[in-house]
Design a binder for these strands. Structure first.
Lengths: 245, 245
DNA sequence: CGACACTTTGAAGACGATCAACGCCGGTGG
DNA sequence: CCACCGGCGTTGATCGTCTTCAAAGTGTCG
C-alpha cells in the first residue's frame, strides 16, 4: 500500500496532494500492467476509467473507414488519459488505446472521479492544468499542420522528443518505429523517410534509428519558436530519468 | 446589478451556479462592449482577464512571419475565452483577439479566478467541461485537416455552422465573410471558393452568402459522422435565439 | 531458411497554394 | 454626379508538395 502511495507522489498530477487526498486516491485506484500490444480500451467500449501512465507508452488511435490507422496521440509516463472524459455525458470511447510497450497505469473509476472531484481541490486544479496544456499543444499542432512543411514538422517533433524524453541532443535512439512516428505526425511513412534526408542540411542527422543534432543553431532556427523549449516538461523529465534505471 | 445577475444566468457557463457563487461573480466581473474591429487583447499583452462572450463574434488569430493572418478560432455568445490561461504561468498572450462584430463580453480578472476557483465548485466543473469540449473539437479538427479534402472540410463546417448557430438548413446566410471563414478553416480563399462549386453535387448549394442544404441525406453522408449532430449545442442554441430578437 | 513487418527509393498523380487578372460593390472625394 | 479606390470574391494557369502505387532492400523471429 505504501508502494502505491509513493508511486502516486512521483506522478506530477498527484505530486502535491494533501495527505487525505492521497489516501483517498490510493483506496480508490489500482495499478495495472498491460502487455505490449494489448488494448486499454477499444472504440465502442464503455468509458470506465481515468488513467495515469506510470511506465511505457500508449498509442491513442482511430481506424479510418478504409482501414487506415490514424494515431492521435502517444502518451508516456506522467500523462493522463481520459481526463477529458470526466466532465462529459459520452458513454462510449471513439478511439482505441493500445500499449506500444509494456505499460503500467494507475486506473481510477471515472464515476468515482465525477463524484469526488469537488472534494479534491488540488487534484481538480491539476486536471484543469493538464487539460489546458493538452489543449494548447493541440492548437499549436493544428497550426503547424497548416503552416509548416513536412520537414519542419519532423524537425520540430524530433526536438520536442529530445526535450520531453530527456534525450541527449548529441545522439539518441528513436523511441518508436518510424511507422508509428509518421502516423503520429499525420504524414505517410514514405514522406517521413524522405524528410530525414532533407534534415541533414538543417543540422539534424538521422541514420536508422539514431538521431543527432549536429548543428543545434541551424536546427533551432529551422523549427518554430514555440517548440524550442517549454518550462513544463521538467516534471516529465525527472520522472523519465527515474524510469531509465 | 440585477441585470448583470440575470445576464450571468443566461450563460451556460454560469447557468446553475449557487446563489452565493453568482453574487461573487457579479461583484468581481464587469460587462464591457467592444466595437467592431477593436482588440480585446493583442499578441504580447499581459494576460489579465478571463472572458465570456455575451454578444457578437470574436476572432482569435496570429500573424505569421510573412504577414499572413491565421485565425485559430471564432468565438460566439456563450463561449469562454482564456479558460486555458487560468492554470498557467504564462504571462503574455501569444495571439490576438479582435471583435469581428460589435461585441459584449463579461470580463473577470484571471488573478481573481485563480484565487477563488477552489471555492466555486460548480464553476470549476463548468470550466473543466468547457476545456474538455474545446480539446475534443481541436482533436477532431486536427483529424479532419489530415484526413479530409478541402471540400469535405467546408461541408463539415457549413453543417456545424447550421447546428451551432441554429440556422435553418433550408436556407441561411453566412455569418462571416468568406475570407474569414477560409482563414478559420486554414485554407485559401481561392480554394474555398472552388470547393463551393463541388458542393453543389453533394447537396449543398451556396450562392453569394446564401447557403442551403438541398439534399440533406447526400450532404450527411459526405461529411464525417462526428460532425453530424452533437448534443451539447442545445445550450448555445437557446442563447442565440434569444439574441436574434 | 522463409515469412513478415519495417524501411527506403522511384515514378506518377492529386490536391491545394500561389500568382495574376478581372468583376463587383460601397465609400470617398473632386 | 461621376471617377477613383480598396476590399472582396471569382476564375484560370502554373507550381510545389505530399500521397499513392510499386518494387526492392533490411531486419527479426519463428
Amino acid at each position: 500500500m505504501t508502494i502505491k502511495s509513493e508511486m502516486l507522489r512521483t506522478l506530477p498530477l498527484f505530486s502535491d496532494l494533501a495527505q487525505s487526498e492521497n489516501a483517498l486516491l490510493v483506496a480508490n485506484s489500482r495499478l495495472k500492467d498491460y502487455e505490449r500490444g494489448t488494448f486499454l480500451f477499444m472504440h465502442g467500449d464503455k468509458i470506465i476509467n481515468f488513467y495515469v501512465i506510470c511506465r511505457g507508452t500508449v498509442q491513442i488511435f482511430r481506424e479510418t473507414p478504409d482501414g487506415h490507422e490514424v494515431t492521435s496521440d502517444l502518451l508516456i509516463a506522467g500523462d493522463a488519459l481520459n481526463a477529458d472524459k470526466i466532465n462529459t455525458e459520452k458513454l462510449a470511447h471513439t478511439k482505441n488505446a493500445r500499449a506500444v510497450t509494456d505499460v503500467t497505469v494507475l486506473e481510477i473509476p471515472i464515476s468515482w472521479m465525477q463524484k469526488n472531484l469537488s472534494n479534491l481541490d488540488h487534484l481538480a486544479a491539476h486536471l484543469m492544468r493538464s487539460l489546458s496544456d493538452r489543449l494548447h499543444s493541440a492548437q499549436i499542432e493544428a497550426e503547424h499542420q497548416s503552416t509548416m512543411s513536412a520537414t519542419q514538422i519532423v524537425a520540430c517533433y524530433l526536438q520536442q522528443l529530445c526535450m520531453l524524453y530527456g534525450f541527449d541532443p548529441d545522439g539518441f535512439e528513436l523511441p518508436y518505429s518510424k511507422t508509428l512516428i509518421a502516423s503520429r505526425l499525420r504524414i505517410e511513412v514514405e514522406t517521413f523517410s524522405r524528410t530525414l534526408k532533407n534534415l541533414r542540411d538543417k543540422g539534424i542527422e538521422v541514420n536508422g534509428t539514431h538521431v543527432s543534432f549536429t548543428d543545434l543553431q541551424k536546427a533551432e532556427q529551422f523549427v518554430c519558436k514555440q517548440c524550442s523549449l517549454s518550462e513544463d516538461c521538467q516534471v516529465h523529465l525527472s520522472l523519465h530519468k527515474a524510469n531509465l534505471n
